[in-house]
Design a binder for these strands. Structure first.
Lengths: 154, 154
DNA sequence: TTGGTTGCAAACACTTTGCAGCTGA
DNA sequence: TCAGCTGCAAAGTGTTTGCAACCAA
């Protein structure tokens, strides 16, 4: 998918936030379980956004016994830890943003169905326009804009 | 309300597109029923956007016997006629835009729960920014931006 | 008459919840 | 041990569909 290029090189400082997740879970008196490990394995392979349904399916690939309720409960937990955030996609389904280290919105192409990231640099124009014109302060992470991407014009 | 007066010099032109709806429905060999009349009465009192659930409730106020399935089916029909358009609101529910005579997006305030219209004049900045920077052509009618309105800043 | 419509109820897809038993620390 | 976790099944949303009866044209 023609996703936004991830930072090559300069990257994140220190260990992956997912590694810290184990400790942070334990630190809260919570337990590190096989089910949580499975979900986090799935999550750390992905960047961007996924639907809960997709996560459940991917977990089931690794562990046939995966249960939806456990996945949802674990996602709630991870959201409390700030490792994922949820919103709603263009079709109204729960959609999880993985590792939102950088707040971003989404662009959905009705032509090819691809979802693109709307980087803060680009989104800034929107944020500023609405702030100055209407006094409205945008939460970019909840923005999804539909339209047609460069490759899908009529 | 914004333009909409398509004053034709000859004969059949209703003052409101809703009046034309009756004829357009009949013209398609379809039937004009009490249930459809009820829904359209409800719709013509509203501007902007409503959830299907809200429409069902309002119809039931007028006609206790209103059924969800009929409302959904009628909304489908009205969408075919171009009288409403549906999208998804900030919470992922079906949301209908009534009489989208003027294409517009939405602003949702997470503070007070109000939904505001994003007028094309204001939205133009967004459209232009994404077009020039990414070659993405925005469909403003599917844009919903969350944030805080001027009266709800922390 | 007759095909579009309706109401009902059941099906749906996705998500949440209650609870008894299991398990990580 | 024992609070937290899991699986299951059942409940809940909101939306869609199958079908026999119904009714607008």
């Amino acid at each position: 998918m023609p996703h936004a290029e991830m930072n090559a090189g300069a990257g994140v400082t220190g260990p992956s936030p997912w590694d810290q997740a184990v400790d942070r879970i334990r630190a809260g008196g919570l337990r590190w379980t096989p089910q949580r490990r499975t979900l986090i394995e799935v999550l750390r392979e992905r960047e961007g956004h996924v639907t809960a349904t997709e996560l459940i399916a991917r977990c089931r690939e690794r562990d046939q016994t995966t249960t939806p309720s456990t996945v949802y409960r674990t996602l709630d937990l991870l959201e409390d830890l700030g490792l994922v955030r949820h919103g709603h996609g263009h079709d109204g389904r729960e959609e999880y943003h993985i590792l939102p280290q950088e707040v971003h919105g989404h662009l959905y192409c009705v032509g090819c169905g691809t979802t693109w990231e709307l980087r803060p640099e680009t989104g800034a124009v929107i944020v500023e326009a609405l702030a100055s014109q209407l006094g409205f302060s945008v939460d970019l992470s909840h923005v999804t804009i539909s339209g047609r991407c460069a490759g899908c014009h009529d």
